[in-house]
Amino acid sequence: MSAPAFGMAFASQAAFRALMECLSRPGEIRTLEGVGAPPPMAPATAALVRSLADYESPIWLDPAFAAAPAIAEWIKFHTGAPIVAAPDKAAFALVADSLAMPTFLKFAQGSEEYPDRSTTIIVQVERFAGPALTLQGPGIETTRDFAAAPLPADFAQRLRDNREMFPRGVDLVFVTGQAIAALPRSVRIVEER
């Protein structure tokens, strides 16, 4: 019997720790060491999936990811996570086409008693630039600006509606190549530019 790959333990930890820092400091951008995966999966997305997903965490793929059969195979081979067709059954949702991402209400919101039973949406974007949202909330000392593109035109409103549901709601992770940022459900938009 071969020993578990030690490298994977360290790579998982590094990816998780980067995401933990990002979620603790909404809007802050961090880079992590990506992992190779079939297109259109970005290296950082692949690292997060391998770090966090397993047989206990169903994954939903957006049509852009689902169109590449190699993606589902790669996820099953590396993590054993089941791929689900219903977004509200998913622990993680992977979105390759950020403009076409479904409204948050299609995903699991958790319940008032168990708000943690909700979907974490990992969205691949082209860049962390564009019209900025000024954010406040836990993890932000004063305010912090966050920008990602491309995003749906009503993205800010979707985020506001998500905050209205608190403690229910979804958490968002944004990925470009090797960089990530996160917007937990606790963030509030104070200004939109």
């Binding site: 979620l23 603790s24 966090l52 909700s118 403690p167 958490d171 937990p184 459900r185 606790s186």
Partner: peptide, 20 residues
């Protein structure tokens, strides 16, 4: 590693819902 993933997923939710 599987236990760590389970705990890590719980930690991420805990950060997103402060105090829960």
């Amino acid at each position: 590693e599987q236990t760590k993933r389970m705990i890590r997923r719980a930690i991420l939710k805990a950060i997103a819902i402060p105090g829960y």
